[in-house]
Design a protein around this nucleic acid. Sequence first.
DNA 1: CCCGTGACTGCATAAGTATGCAGGATTGAC
DNA 2: GTCAATCCTGCATACTTATGCAGTCACGGG
Lengths: 165, 165
Amino acid sequence: MSANATRLVGPAAKPARHRAILSLVRGGIIRTQEDLVAELHRRRFPVTQATVSRDIRELGLLRVHDDAGSRYMAPVAELDVEQTMQRLRNAIREHVQAIEFVDLLGIVHTAPGCAPLVGGALDGSRFEEVAGTIAGDDTVLVIARSRPAAQRLLLRLNSITEEEG
Amino acid sequence: MSANATRLVGPAAKPARHRAILSLVRGGIIRTQEDLVAELHRRRFPVTQATVSRDIRELGLLRVHDDAGSRYMAPVAELDVEQTMQRLRNAIREHVQAIEFVDLLGIVHTAPGCAPLVGGALDGSRFEEVAGTIAGDDTVLVIARSRPAAQRLLLRLNSITEEEG
DNA sequence: CCCGTGACTGCATAAGTATGCAGGATTGAC
DNA sequence: GTCAATCCTGCATACTTATGCAGTCACGGG
């Protein structure tokens, strides 16, 4: 084998490089993909911006704005739209007994003790229609942003109940 | 006044436009600034991509990756680095009595009942060094990712205690 | 009224990111 | 070994975003 042992290269390097990237964005401030390329070179990963672009997508990194510009950040499970919706579907199907709206207020009846779980799933879904929720023991109060929003929300929640799994 | 009442234009339009942008990114899928420009035009905000770029920075929008590409998302308080660090500083200064490390484990003694608050603040800070935390009533257990990480973490937490207000 | 100031924006373009394509490496079947 | 299929990557470039500069407008002071 003639591979240069000081360079982390080839298909096998990808998982290691991904770990390095996560560590870099968690540990320091990475503003551009070129920053990342430079840091990776220092760690013996001889890659280009194109590869880093693909890595970033595969890792699901976030780009956030701060007052000095924007930077990359490690992914946050709470922002994964699909995962979050799945959680809401499960919560509704398994623990919700009834949903009713009175004007702007949605009253969601759940199994005893399950209200916080359902409320959390609703919060996590960040529906445009929802201003906020309050969870008791077996009831979640959902405050809609407007009457049309309340109507849309009811439809949306009902459609979740009706989907097949 | 000769202003065209059907166009939302001029300095006064900015706050309204910002609200519209937030609503758009919460309500639908916005993948590029040009998408946003198009939607804003439909809502009578005759702006260009340059202005939208500035708006996005001012609003602190996030860019997240999903399997179809990337999209914009409304800001999430939990990701605001400064706010999160401030919360940690407050939590440590007000409720923490002692910090000690045993190998990879940090033992943080807090006032009675305050451990969950302190643990939450630590989680929120997403330190690279921290694998996770467990909060009881008056103690938070912090699991570091490695021994060097544990040492760095101890320094970091101590430096928070010592900062001035 | 005239001027200075500050906020806001568009234009043009620089800066940064994503991707079609092709080549090299690896794996597994035969 | 040979071949096909797959994965990974770089190159070049298309696409997307950020920004220096200059112009417009509203406001307040003189």
